[in-house]
Nucleic acid binder design. Structure first.
Length: 203
DNA sequence: GGTAGGATGGGCT
DNA sequence: GCCCATCCTACCC
């Protein structure tokens, strides 16, 4: 899926990138490269979690110890535990004070693949390494220790790919939620085999 | 190919 | 006490 030339990485996404409407950031993160230490993967699936009427968002009931990061400055990681077992990585969006974040749901692994496989013994194929929010954090070694971390510097960052490419993007409802279950807030690179699962396109 | 059910613990009412 | 932004295994076509 990815040529050797494309594995060369570009600039780290800066805070301005994240300080925008959540939906724009979610779309624009597709094709970018998530890096944590020696491991890296191309982001192929994201979901936007908004403020306001979006009751699926953790921020929907206001600021708590857990949700404080989502209201904080953009360009930071929000990592939480789901179902008592798995951790999910979000990137905080919008100007400081406004809630919003993007759930990173799937990656096409490009660097540190051996390392990722060691962390994901259940994965039988490359396609299963990081094709889901819980799988991705396991493979990349991202834990709640990274909650609140600045993703514009340090070990955990997002970079431009070496070669920019025009992407086809499909919009679908978000996965695994009860509230606002039909809102068009999931973004995928449709032909990419590392997407977590197929769901009918809306547009 | 497909899905039902269980593991497991924090957050919040 | 209930609700989960999930994943894996077993089992069934």
């Amino acid at each position: 899926m990815v040529s050797a030339a494309e594995m060369r990485l570009g600039q780290i996404l800066n805070r301005e990138f994240y300080a925008r409407p959540t939906v724009e950031v979610a779309r624009d993160l597709l094709g970018k490269v998530l890096v944590n230490g020696v491991t890296a993967g191309i982001i192929v699936e994201t979901e936007a979690y908004l403020g306001g009427e979006d009751l699926a968002s953790h921020s929907a009931h206001g600021i708590t110890d857990r949700t404080r990061v989502i209201f904080g400055p953009p360009g930071h990681a929000y990592v939480y535990l789901v179902y008592g077992m798995y951790e999910c990585l979000n990137l905080v969006t919008e100007p400081e004070g406004r809630p919003g974040c993007v759930l990173v749901r799937a990656l096409e692994p490009i660097r540190g693949i051996e390392r990722m496989m060691g962390r994901r013994p259940a994965a039988r194929r490359l396609q299963d390494l990081a094709s889901g929010p819980g799988k991705l954090t396991l493979a990349m070694g991202i834990t709640r220790a990274a909650n609140g971390a600045d993703v514009t510097r340090g070990a955990l960052v997002v970079r431009e790919p070496g070669k920019r490419r025009r992407l086809r993007i499909t919009v679908t409802p978000r996965i695994g939620i009860r509230h606002c279950a039909d809102w068009p807030l999931r973004f995928i690179i449709p032909e990419n085999p590392y997407v977590s699962r197929v769901k009918p396109a809306l547009f």
